[in-house]
Design a protein around this nucleic acid. Structure first.
Length: 599
RNA sequence: GGUCCGGUAGCUCAGUUGGAUAGAGCAUCAGCCUUCUAAGCUGAGGGUCAUUGGUUCGAAUCCAAUCCGGAUCACCA
């Protein structure tokens, strides 16, 4: 149990035994960390009780404070400041905590809870390369999956690839018309980029053709439908659906190029998947669900034979589930895929990492599953995140106004190289080690930049401003970690010392303020990790790690570790920094960010 | 128009069920490297928490209304 929770419990007990006649609700008890300008570690707010107990705040505080200090073994003293009971925890608690946990490699992780959850993320279209917005999705999904795992869940990372449909046909038709047999091999262009180039080409030609038609007097709406290249793309889609061998062959080939490109990018990003789903396999699913729904009377048919669900009593609209000709729509296949996932893995929870533009769709999906009585319905959770936009607005791959993911990675690595060289910190590294270091710093900065903001908030990225390597960044945390490792190397203490290393440590001296600040924050890690899991919010770990590194840097500045005042302080501080580095590594690893031992 | 999300320092963002004088980073300014890594530390300036009203011992936080920004409401995916 966390210290804050313990204090809450002890306070409740104290109130009950001091005022047995009063009705104290646990929810009334608020325990906060004491503000730095007051003495104390944790603070109990007295106001909620003054009325019920008919006590003046300060009197109540004295009674409570006396009781807590005398009866319990947690506090050494208390202080009352206008209605706030500031409690100081015994040094003994802190040193015991440190000795017990300093080399605990999985500190904060929770035991397996027997629940299985799928995190679907990335889910790219195969007609273009990944851009900056996809990065947020990938980092978020990967981090949330790790965080849930650390919270005891069995996690399956899934990727539902949108490999069929009109978008890929657009790339295909442009390649057929203008490609001259271009391949990644004979052009040297990465496969996903090559296919993306033809997607852009399609849109250029399409625009020209529409312009030509309107110039001849056709109205725009008709022109958009009648443009030859669009009709050819649609024709291609029909052929694809009919199983035309030639079309399928080209489709397979071009998708193959894209997959190879994606694989490379995923590798650089450090993300991976346990289960791939392809829409070409799943797009026909869901029809049987619709049939069942009709039988159950949950769905209804219109005159033209199309199938609908009425959600007006939920404040929503009617939603189409099957076209008049019996073909399925997006929602139909999503229903089927939800069922498929559930049947494949018997999931307790199914998380979809999808941008907030699909909030309505996901809300409706869950609702329909519920109305159909599907067991997977309750577990469906939309992890909705805000889109990454440019100062000029949304990124549009059709118009080529995107920040490409591969380019961004290259830029970040180059930036970290440049700044490392400028700082003159390249000595003592081999070329290979430097390459690894630049990668660690560059990708760390990129990931942290995208993960540090509350997922549901949209964010604006200005490509003109490079991502900072100072302040609230991964670099800051990496640097603190490297400093710790440097001390440990010097003192010949392993990163994870065996239990006997500090077995002769005994605590006799007071814990100093800077030391206690670190212990306070370290003790809070398990609670932060749990929160990050229950809220699906990696940014909590970003904030936490930054605060921890900040605290360490202040500590480092104020107290020497190697040349501590005496042996006891040296040992205590070594344990302190061992644990700090361990917690940093654990938390950052969940975010997919590595911490160098030297930088 | 309906629904949902957001509005906190010049900029980017924290602020965990309502708690003390609203905090970080960037940028600006002033200090700190014969001492474990200065990618760091210390300090200063900078705020009508969009607006108004309400709830109460207490509101950035809860409620209502208004203003601004965004998303969505397809026989698209």
């Amino acid at each position: 149990m966390t210290l804050a929770a313990q204090i809450k419990q002890v306070a409740e007990q104290a109130l009950k035994s001091l005022f047995p006649e009063a009705d104290i609700q646990p929810s009334q008890i608020t325990v906060n960390q004491t503000k730095p300008e007051f003495t104390g570690d944790y603070t109990l707010v007295l106001f909620p009780f003054v009325k019920a107990l008919r006590q003046k705040p300060d009197e109540l505080g004295r009674k409570l404070g006396d009781y807590l200090v005398q009866q319990g073994d947690l506090f050494v003293s208390y202080d009352i400041v206008s209605g706030f009971l500031n409690l100081t925890v015994k040094d003994e608690y802190w040193t015991n905590f440190l000795v017990k946990e300093y080399n605990h490699t999985s500190f904060g992780a929770r035991p397996v809870n027997g629940k299985r959850v799928m995190v679907e993320y990335s889910s790219p279209n195969t007609n273009k390369p990944l851009h900056f917005g996809h990065l947020r999705n990938n980092f978020l999904g990967y981090a949330v999956a790790n965080i849930l795992q650390a919270n005891g869940y069995e996690v399956i990372k899934a990727n539902l690839v949108n490999d069929r449909g009109i978008h890929i046909c657009k790339s295909m038709i442009a390649w057929m018309r203008y490609g001259n047999g271009a391949t990644p091999e004979n052009t040297g262009i990465k496969g996903d980029h090559l296919v993306g180039d033809y997607y852009v080409k399609f849109n250029d030609i399409y625009k020209e053709e529409v312009a030509a038609l309107t110039a001849n007097g056709m109205d725009e709406a008709t022109a958009e439908k009648e443009a030859p290249i669009m009709k050819e793309a649609q024709d291609l889609l029909r052929k694809w659906e009919a199983g035309d061998a030639e079309v399928r062959e080209l489709w397979k080939q071009m998708n193959g190029w894209v997959y190879k490109g994606f694989e490379e990018t995923y590798g650089r990003l450090g993300v991976n998947f346990d289960q791939m789903y392809y829409e070409s396999d799943t797009y026909l699913l869901g029809k049987s669900l619709v049939e069942d729904g009709l039988k159950k009377g949950v769905l209804f048919k219109k005159e033209d034979n199309s199938v609908w669900i009425d959600l007006t009593d939920e404040g929503l609209d009617q939603k189409l589930l099957l076209r008049g000709d019996g073909t399925s729509v997006y929602m139909t296949q999503d229903l089927g895929t939800a069922q498929l996932k559930y049947n494949d893995y018997k999931l307790d929870q199914s998380i979809y990492v999808i941008a907030d533009e699909q909030n309505y769709h996901m809300q409706v999906l869950k609702l329909i599953l519920k109305k159909l009585g599907e067991p997977c319905a309750d577990g469906v959770y939309h992890l909705s995140y805000g889109m990454v936009e440019l100062p000029s607005g949304k990124m549009k791959s059709r118009e080529g106004t995107v920040v490409d993911a591969d380019d961004m990675i290259d830029e970040m690595i180059a930036l970290s190289q440049q700044q490392t060289e400028e700082a003159g910190k390249t000595e003592g590294f081999t070329q290979d080690e430097l390459a690894t270091l630049y990668n660690t710093i560059g990708l760390g900065a990129l990931k942290f930049y995208l993960l540090r903001v509350d997922p549901k908030k949209r964010m604006i990225f200005d490509p003109k401003e490079s991502i900072d390597l100072h302040g609230f960044t991964a670099t800051f945390i990496q640097y603190a970690h490297a400093r710790i490792c440097s001390i440990l190397r010097k003192e010949q203490v392993p990163m994870v010392p065996p239990a006997e290393t500090f077995s002769n440590f005994t605590s006799t001296l007071p814990v100093l303020p800077a030391e206690k600040k670190m212990l306070l924050i370290l003790e809070q890690y398990p609670a932060i990790l749990e929160n990050a899991g229950s809220e699906y919010n990696p940014s909590l770990l970003c904030n936490y790690c930054f605060a921890l590194a900040q605290q360490f840097n202040s500590f480092y500045d104020e107290h020497s570790i190697s040349k501590a005042e005496n042996e006891e302080k040296k040992q205590l501080r070594l344990m302190l920094i061992v644990m700090t580095a361990q917690v940093m590594r654990n938390a950052m690893q969940l975010l997919g960010i590595r911490l160098p031992e030297k930088m």
